[in-house]
Write a protein that binds this DNA or RNA. Structure first.
Length: 824
DNA sequence: AGCACGCCGACT
DNA sequence: GTCGGCGTGCTC
């Protein structure tokens, strides 16, 4: 007779234990246990209890007496649905991540709550002190003091490696008892609210009870009389008082303090309604095509290729509106950096309380609350960054991915998933539809659209027939030849001046923050580099510090060269800080703001800059990446791109694509209002096709050229890429291990008669950024066609994951990435 | 990872 | 005999 058993993934951070364990199920538990539930299981020789997640319940034909039993259920219903579980397991296979990492992605944020063993004295048992060793006596005395102590607490106090031995002995003697307690408390947030106690009394009557000198107290009473129940925070702010005033009023019994649970919501208050726009014919056509195709079951994947300003957002909004009418739910993914209040306002403004927002700046509590709202069906639309693709809806109808080409949709942490692929898989599992939108599709997506796998919808005009901005290219080499050594070309300078005269706004884009990008000694050629990363340090003017943009290390700039002692230290290269300074000098009467990581690190500062930009309080906005997406300022008519070559010269196969996208996206910020826009692109390689095609606003031609290169050099979408990065403190060791791994991969391939694939395995070589955060990094790059991908993944996981505990690989870590963003 | 087990040497 | 340190190997 076969019995039912559960496959459990245990919450144990080790690659050795990252596999399903089989546990027997007690009869009385059989009915309640479902996959997706958390359980408590005995694990290891000591049978200590650890948490795990049931991923499968199945028949078992082996000898059940060899199995251990599940100790306890931690949930009354599954915390993740069957489909999300399946999605998670699919990720594990696809991205070569661990079970646990993949599960964590779909589980509620910060899950697997603490489980503690508590130890206390068994006072029903009398015992003879003489039979007890001093160590044991020590434990008993601690327990006598505290009644009940958690194991971890006791361990801290006793500081003894063999504490388990002693506890075990004491337990055997019956002197102590242990129990397990699970902390299930969800941390809810409470806020204090204040009301008047005697709210039916007249104001004068209450005031008369308070001393005339207690001016502040009277003010508080007056405020409460007018406003009624008010949160403590607001009350203190509005009346400009301190907590002591409120406290003394409470003592007198004039006011009541109530604690109310607040659902932390990241959505700001007071968002005004975002009115429905009438669609243009093109938009209408696009919307109907999607709806009809879905309705007729002719397809469920779409790409809206619409130029900047063609009104994609309004199509999304009306799609969602259409869909939620039928009781379905929708997820909208936007890139992290364009998750600005502007974007949020549009969705919240249209759909109100039915929207949840998820992004990385949420606190743990906020995130948990949003997750719960989604799970409990309190909302039906989620707007969020990458990880929102896992929003726990159970009647999902639509996933929209805006700015589909953005590289932030690829996770750099385990599981290293691509949200577009995950969304596709999720749609497949749940019968939902996928809509991708962008002005500059990724090569991969457009290739699939052309092959008919994804339905392509093109919007080639801006709404209201607004013109796309004219793109002027300035050859900085000529500029130099004609004697202009400034970072601003004459054309750009003139254009800014003209724009200021006309009271229009200007955006200047430079993808480098800081002041100087490197500092160097003119005598001996020394360059200041980060000691952890082997990367030149950026000088930040305002703090007078050198910073490493990779690991965050900060030092003071040297006055004399640390190599040769000369005083001739010079600062080279320009970042946004320097541009700001130069522009301030050149246009002293203009209002200038800078937006990059350094000016927006504080909560709310981002929104503040955008607001003053919108209000027209800024003439020139200088910024990095951050200003490229989704911003919609009608008064911006000029965009200056200070250095178009930065991204072009990176040793990466996507550099052309990235450059084209950047120019098109940044340029697209110009001329969105009633005035025509102009873009000035400064470059040292004006003849490069990605710059030329961006100038012509010709994505198709860019695509046609780039796709040929991808085919010729065997890059995606024609080949998949797996990178294995091996890293550690000791350069020799890293090099040695990576060579070993390489030969092991070849060995495995030969074993299965696939030796000829060796030509597609490159390396091991030092990664282009060889040293980061004190780790040396070597990499192996594997290219694979569709047929061999699964097999190659298998080989990689055998060699790198299954054997990673191997003693030879001690101190070396592996990072495996399937189709990474870049191969730096 | 985290833990038990076993071996060894020091100390009583 | 007891205690603590350390290396090894396993976890349904």
């Amino acid at each position: 007779m076969s019995t039912m058993v559960a496959k459990v993934i245990v919450d144990n951070r080790s690659s050795k234990t990252d596999k399903p364990y089989t546990y027997a199920i007690k009869k009385d538990m059989e009915e309640d246990l479902k996959q997706g539930m958390r359980v408590l299981v005995p694990f290891g020789r000591g049978n200590r209890y650890i948490k795990g997640l049931v991923i499968k319940i199945e028949k078992y034909n082996g000898n059940i007496s060899k199995l251990k039993y599940i100790k306890d259920l931690l949930d009354d219903k599954p915390i993740i649905s069957e489909k999300m579980l399946e999605l998670s397991l699919w990720m594990k296979e696809n991205y070569l991540s661990s079970y646990l990492d993949s599960l964590y992605a779909v589980m509620p944020p910060g899950d697997f709550k603490k489980i503690n063993t508590y130890i206390y004295i068994n006072d029903k048992q009398s015992f003879n002190m003489e039979q007890i060793s001093p160590k044991e006596k020590n434990i008993i005395s601690i327990l006598n003091d505290k009644k009940k102590v958690s194991f971890s607490e006791l361990k801290k106090e006793v500081k003894d490696n063999n504490i388990r031995k002693h506890i075990k002995k004491l337990e055997e003697k019956g002197i102590i008892l242990t129990s397990l307690e699970i902390e299930t408390k969800i941390h809810k947030k409470y806020e204090k609210y204040i009301t008047l106690k005697n709210d039916n009394m007249k104001l004068e009557e209450i005031l008369s009870k308070i001393d005339n000198r207690a001016f502040k107290q009277q003010e508080v009473i007056k405020f409460l009389y007018e406003a009624g129940e008010t949160s403590l925070k607001k009350l203190l702010k509005e009346t400009n008082t301190s907590n002591s005033v409120v406290k003394s009023l409470e003592k007198k019994g004039e006011i009541k303090i109530i604690e109310k649970e607040v659902l932390r919501s990241p959505i700001p208050n007071g968002i005004s309604q975002y009115k429905k726009h009438k669609l243009t014919d093109k938009q209408e056509y696009c919307l109907n095509e999607i709806l009809d195709t879905i309705r007729n079951e002719e397809g469920n994947k779409f790409l809206i290729h619409g130029v900047t300003g063609s009104g994609k957002t309004e199509i999304y909004l009306q799609l969602i509106e259409n869909l939620i009418k039928s009781g379905k739910q929708a997820i909208v993914l936007v890139p992290e950096i364009s998750l600005t209040p502007q974007t949020v306002e549009r969705f919240v403004g249209r759909f109100g309380q039915k929207v949840a927002v998820l992004h990385s700046r949420l606190s743990y509590g906020e995130r948990f609350d949003e997750w719960r709202r989604i799970k409990e069906g309190k909302v039906n639309i989620v707007v969020g960054a990458r990880s929102a693709v896992f929003a726990p809806f159970n009647n999902l109808g639509l996933i929209i991915i805006d700015e589909e080409h953005e590289n932030s949709y690829k996770s750099s942490m385990n599981p290293k998933y691509n949200a577009i692929e995950v969304a596709e898989k999720r749609c497949e599992l749940e019968g939902a539809s996928l809509v991708l939108g962008t002005a500059t599709p990724s090569l991969e997506t457009y290739y699939r659209a052309k092959s008919g796998e994804i339905k392509l919808l093109t919007l080639s005009d801006r709404i209201n027939n607004k013109k796309l901005p004219t793109m002027n290219i300035v050859d900085m080499r000529e500029e130099l030849n004609s004697g202009n050594r400034s970072i601003l070309s004459v054309d750009l300078y003139d254009a800014i001046e003209e724009n200021l005269k006309n009271n229009k706004q200007t955006i200047l884009f430079l993808n480098r923050r800081g002041y100087s990008t490197f500092i160097s000694c003119r005598k001996c050629g020394y360059v200041a580099k980060c000691e952890n990363c082997d990367i030149s340090l950026t000088y930040h003017f305002s703090e007078n510090k050198l910073k490493c943009h990779y690991c965050g290390m900060v030092t003071s700039p040297p006055r004399i060269c640390p190599e040769c002692g000369s005083k001739y230290i010079k600062y080279f290269g320009s970042g946004t800080q320097k541009i700001e300074e130069i522009v301030k000098k050149l246009f002293p009467y203009s209002r200038i703001a800078r937006m990059d990581v350094d000016t927006t690190s504080r909560k709310g500062s981002h929104a503040r800059i955008l607001k003053s930009m919108k209000n027209g309080d800024i003439d020139i906005l200088i910024g990095t990446q951050m200003i490229t997406k989704g911003l919609d300022f009608p008064l911006v008519t000029l965009v200056g791109i200070i250095a178009a070559d930065t991204s072009l010269n990176l040793p990466d196969f996507r550099s052309s694509e990235k450059t084209f996208q950047l120019l098109t996206q940044v340029g697209g910020r110009a001329g969105r209002g009633d005035f025509e826009g102009q873009v000035i692109v400064q470059t040292y390689s004006p003849e490069h096709f990605s710059i030329q095609m961006a100038k012509e606003h010709d994505y198709i031609q860019f695509y046609n050229k780039e796709i040929l290169l991808r085919k010729e050099f065997e890059y995606p979408p024609f080949m998949d890429i797996i990178t294995i990065v091996m890293y550690g403190r000791d350069r020799n060791k890293v090099s040695k291990v990576s060579k070993k791994i390489y030969s092991k991969i070849l060995e495995k391939l030969k074993e299965i008669n696939k030796g000829e694939l060796a030509k597609n395995i490159f390396g091991p070589n030092p990664a282009p950024l060889e040293k980061l955060k004190n780790n040396y990094r070597w990499q192996i790059i594997i290219k694979s066609d569709k047929e061999n991908l699964k097999m190659l993944k298998n080989v990689v996981s055998r060699v790198c994951i299954y054997n990673s505990q191997n003693k030879e690989y001690k101190d070396i870590k592996f990072s495996i990435d399937v189709n990474p963003n870049s191969i730096l």
